[in-house]
Design a protein around this nucleic acid. Structure first.
Lengths: 246, 246
DNA sequence: CGCAGTTTTGATTCATCTCAATTTGTGTGG
DNA sequence: CCACACAAATTGAGATGAATCAAAACTGCG
């Protein structure tokens, strides 16, 4: 907590370079030419490290930039005055954070690192300027925002119509798919969030999440050891999904 | 159903004109200068009438344009293979439909008119082009998308953490606020959707919605006569919201 | 004016929540 | 490096809010 680096070189030394980044094909530079990515490099000023448990931004912070996750894992959440929390998403490398702030120029949710992470700061005014010049960038940014909307619709579907086990199955399959896209194992991964955070995202209590995990394990669909998950029967999980209630 | 206008002048005769539109301050032209709105006029080619119950677009339709609601009322929904429906939103005059399709260039939900409606077609490629030229348009369009994301987060909060009566109270207050912004009475309005559609949106069964309405009425918070709603105690409804469960 | 679709209301069931106790894991400081 | 304290996860028993099933009442459309 107290041990910030004594020499304040952390920020400036981390000059970003999309052109060198292995997430290039997942992240904002997708579809840009070499020359265009170089232009983007100049815009993406600095990287910043966020320690586990720390905020990247908070609801009510003024909006200035969006953020690309270089490495690590985040959650976004909204807090009600009475203390209720709704996790609105989990974000991993290559994904964009902060678009909630564009509309009001104030952030409307909190973004919190679930492990030590590193993000690229993309000043929004400059992004807009550059995307007036580079059509492919404009187009891709619009797609990123649109996909966020579509993702949110999926969560609504999950929260509005699915039962607990369906929700969890959908959640696991979604994670698996996203890890796969990043070159990690589709079958085996490490959850960065607690049962409570999963529950909040899925509209369930942590005990229900835990029970569903146990049930999946009994049925041989997955193996669970705390945060280590191994998917043993993807088909079985998928079958759970479109196989409505009683 | 069968009685399309015999003379096919419906489309072309309805040349749009944002500059003349009384929704100008709510809709896409917000914040544009006279000259800029005139440019937008040229882009917003035609209007189209959609009869009650008809689709504006369907999931899997190719994406070509976004749509501004000139008048009327829509719902958007997603259908699961097993028949479950999730209503993802209700849209009224001045609001924008179709942004779900940008990401994949295929629409991902259905947009259905809940009353006879009229929409302005905004071809998306042209909108992108013009928003590369007009900064205020670009900015405003980004705000519109961002607000959609924030709205979706609100629905997640509602579905994930609220009990039935809280959900309905939030829904009514939201509608009231949006009608107010359009110059209609904040206290009295006409629901265009069925209890089932409200239920689908709120993650509840229609019987539960109906019971909640009755309960509100007993408590003197609203008066309900079928689809006619009158809010009698806004404060009371608001109190329901941040006043957690048992 | 009659009928289909919508809404209301009641009785019962069930999935998930709540409360509670225990186990397991994790990070810290001696 | 180990022990301890605290956080996270599991599991059980019981309570409850919403779903389900069912029937009646309304209404507005053709």
């Amino acid at each position: 907590m107290h041990a910030q680096n004594v020499i304040p070189i952390t920020l400036t030394s981390l000059k970003a370079a999309c052109s060198q980044c292995n997430l290039r094909e997942l992240c904002l530079p997708f579809g840009l030419s070499e020359a265009e990515v170089t232009q983007l490099d100049q815009l993406v000023g600095v990287r910043r490290k966020i320690k586990r448990g720390h905020h990247l931004y908070r609801a009510s912070d003024p909006f200035e930039a969006i953020y690309a996750i270089k490495m690590g894992f985040f959650k976004t959440d909204i807090l009600l005055e009475d203390g209720r929390e709704q996790v609105t998403g989990f974000q991993m490398a290559g994904e964009i954070l902060g678009m909630d702030g564009i509309g009001t120029e104030i952030h409307t949710c909190n973004a919190i690192a679930l492990e030590d992470s590193e993000i690229c700061i993309i000043p929004f005014a400059q992004l807009e300027q550059l995307s007036r010049e580079i059509q492919a960038l404009q187009r891709h940014f619009h797609k990123v925002m649109s996909r966020e909307i579509v993702r949110d619709h999926g969560v609504m579907m999950l929260l509005g119509t699915m039962r607990a086990e369906e929700r969890l199955a959908a959640f696991l399959l979604n994670l698996s798919q996203r890890f796969t896209a990043r070159g990690y194992s589709p079958q085996e991964f490490h959850l960065r969030m607690t049962r409570e955070e999963i529950g909040s995202y899925l509209g369930l209590k942590l005990e229900t999440v835990s029970r569903a995990f146990s049930r999946f394990q009994e049925e041989g669909l997955i193996s669970v050891h705390q945060k280590h998950i191994r998917l043993l029967d993807n088909q079985g999980l998928k079958r759970l999904l479109n196989h409505q209630a009683p």
